[in-house]
Design a protein around this nucleic acid. Sequence first.
DNA 1: CCAAGAATGAGACTCAGTCTTATGATAGGT
DNA 2: ACCTATCATAAGACTGAGTCTCATTCTTGG
Lengths: 148, 148
Amino acid sequence: MSIYAGADSWVPRAEAVLTRAGYRRGGARRAVIELLDAQECALTAVEIEEALRSEHRRVSRASVYRILDELEQVRLVQRVETGQTMVRYERVCEDEHHHHLVCDSCGLVMPFSDKALERAIETLSERVPLAVSEHEIVLHGACEDCAA
Amino acid sequence: MSIYAGADSWVPRAEAVLTRAGYRRGGARRAVIELLDAQECALTAVEIEEALRSEHRRVSRASVYRILDELEQVRLVQRVETGQTMVRYERVCEDEHHHHLVCDSCGLVMPFSDKALERAIETLSERVPLAVSEHEIVLHGACEDCAA
DNA sequence: CCAAGAATGAGACTCAGTCTTATGATAGGT
DNA sequence: ACCTATCATAAGACTGAGTCTCATTCTTGG
């Protein structure tokens, strides 16, 4: 989370989107939103629960999952399937679309982005028997430490 | 499974690869291999267990998972993460690389392939801080029936 | 044919994710 | 500012995909 976070950062946008969608406010959702905003990359639901507990803002497991579902519905959060048993979640920023590299050896997850890849997917989406709404690419392999 | 299945089909190749890797033969693994060879697209472990039971070749759950892991180790099978709670598995054919479209409304899974996309990923794999071993792309959206 | 040890089955077990229900908080109407 | 309908949350029981253990069965090299 930027220390200069202003009206255009993710937290206020999230609040606005939720209000517009008819949600009321609540402490648990607020805590989850602020935590997600402070992350560099995707977290699992369990990691979120533990992180909040460790900063004395305990949120029940059911609430974590419900809140993540709600945020996903309104496209404030996206799921990341890393093939690591637990699904990961991260905030969606309109100006910062990225995908993920997963090290199958140590579990490290890193973001990446590539314009040629985006173009290929856009073109492809037109020619396929599916109204594509989401795409999410995960490349598996060995990170620099593990490959060495 | 082609009715003309010959020495170059997937089943014999699988047997050869497994033998070379030091595995013995066994009825359960044989049953799983033959079932996977007969599929058009990816199955879940539970679907595999049920399909085998319905054709009177009951294989225990532990064996299904162990066998799928073994087959994945030697690259005879690949996991497909569709974001549908259960992981899917399908045979890997050297000459038939494809990806998947998932309908988030009805759960339909369809294969597709695209050369421009493959090229983009190949190029990209060179420039990324990961020794890429696998890539698996899932596009989410609404299928023609559900979009209508 | 005979071990040595791999393959399998059966079922207990784990734990991420879901569901239920009682309680607490929010916001529009007064 | 208060009321109250109703949404948000906590707590914890519950579900089920996937794992683990271990006794038994099958393969295969010698």
